[in-house]
Structure formats: C-alpha cells, structure tokens
Simulated scan of single mutants.
Amino acid sequence: MIYIMDERRKEERRILYIPLCSDVTIGSIHQQEVLCGSMEACIKDISIHGLRCISPLRFPINSNFILRFQTRIMDNVINLDGNIAWRKNDPQAPGIYEYGIQLHHDEFSSAMFTKLFNDMGIWLKSSSFVPGCRFCTKETCPLYPSKHKIEHH
C-alpha cells in the first residue's frame, strides 16, 4: 500500500497495517459527561492530533459530541478523546462508517501520548508490528479482517 501525504495534514501519521482495536464510547455531549456502554472500533491510522477509525456505530458530526477511545499502546492503556471531523460510509460495507477524529489532549495526556507516538514510529520504521499494542485479530474484533476499503478523502 502506498500512502501519499495529504496537504491538509499538519503532522505525520502512523499508518497501521494491522488496526489497533479500541473501545469507543460517548465521552460527553455539550460538555456534559455521558455514562454509556462501549463498542469496538478499529483505529487505522493515528497522529498526535487525530485518528482515522471504522465503527458500526453512526455518530453525529458535531464539535460538542466527544468520543473516548481506549486502547493499549506499548503496554500503556491510553484514553484518547476527540470530536468527529468527518464521516464516510462504504457502499460495499453497509453499516460500517469511517471517521476522522480530531483529538483533544490535556497537558499530561499530550506529553504521554506524544512519547508513545514517537516510540511507535521508531518500531514502525522497521516492522509493521509494535509490541504491547491491542491489535485487532479475527478472534477479538468483529470488524477485522476488514472487507471494506475506504481510503483517505
């Protein structure tokens, strides 16, 4: 797979040939915390300030609607909060949506995530495998192997 840098991108992205499996839940709506269940989403690529994922859930595109992703990167459980920047559906995979998420970090989570992101980049230069991550597998993730080929817009 060849990846061409989109001019709109502000920063380097880590393309994950095996997606990270993540629990996604609604974190807040209009700054009011929401308590609800979670569902799995596959993170296909990630940067310091954003991620691209797929999910069977159809979320609204609204800056007041914050999603929370929880995954494991290099043996660290990490929570990533962000709002949906865009959504696409794939006519060949009805009921699966692809999202572009703009991440929001506080000072502590930003420093921690930046270090993990940089360490992950070192591993990805020589391998598609990063140790200690929660990668999607056929046994654990209902969305993997993905039959849909939604690409960058």
Rank of each mutant, 00 (worst) to 15 (best):
Q92N: 06
H104K: 11
H49K: 12
R9E: 02
S38Y: 10
C141E: 05
S110F: 05
G37L: 05
F59V: 00
S28G: 01
E151V: 11
R134I: 09
I43S: 01
E139M: 13
T140R: 04
Y3G: 13
L57D: 11
F129V: 06
K138A: 10
E151H: 12
F59D: 00
C21I: 10
T25W: 10
R87A: 13
E107N: 09
E11L: 01
K125D: 12
G50S: 00
L20D: 04
N83A: 07
P19I: 03
D23A: 14
F135S: 02
I18T: 08
L51D: 01
C133L: 14
C133R: 07
G95D: 11
I48V: 15
E98I: 05
I84W: 02
I18K: 05
I2N: 11
P142C: 04
F65L: 01
D45I: 06
N62V: 05
F117Y: 03
Y3H: 14
I96K: 07
P94Q: 12
T140A: 02
E107C: 08
V24E: 09
M74S: 07
I73H: 02
P145F: 11
I43W: 06
G95V: 09
V77H: 13
V24K: 04
M5Q: 08
N79H: 03
K149Y: 13
K10A: 03
E11W: 06
L80Y: 00
P94M: 11
P131G: 07
G50W: 04
R52D: 11
S146H: 00
P60Y: 02
N76R: 13
G27C: 03
D45T: 00
V130Q: 13
E7Y: 14
L16S: 05
C53Q: 08
L35M: 15
P91R: 04
S128Y: 08
S22P: 01
F69S: 01
I4Y: 15
S63N: 13
V77I: 15
C133G: 02
F117V: 05
R72P: 00
L51A: 02
R68E: 15
K147L: 12
D23K: 15
I29V: 03
K115F: 08
D6V: 03
I66V: 09
N89E: 15
D6E: 10
H105A: 06
Y144I: 00
R9W: 06
K149M: 12
N89C: 13
T25F: 14
D23N: 11
I26D: 05
E98F: 04
R68F: 10
Y97I: 06
N64W: 06
Y17N: 14
R13G: 01
L103G: 01
I61A: 08
G37E: 12
N62Q: 00
E33I: 09
L103Y: 04
S55C: 07
E151T: 01
F108C: 00
F113I: 12
S126H: 10
S38G: 11
A111W: 02
E107W: 12
H49D: 08
F108H: 02
I15H: 02
C36V: 08
N64D: 13
L143W: 07
W123A: 02
T25M: 14
D119C: 10
L16F: 08
V77T: 15
G121E: 01
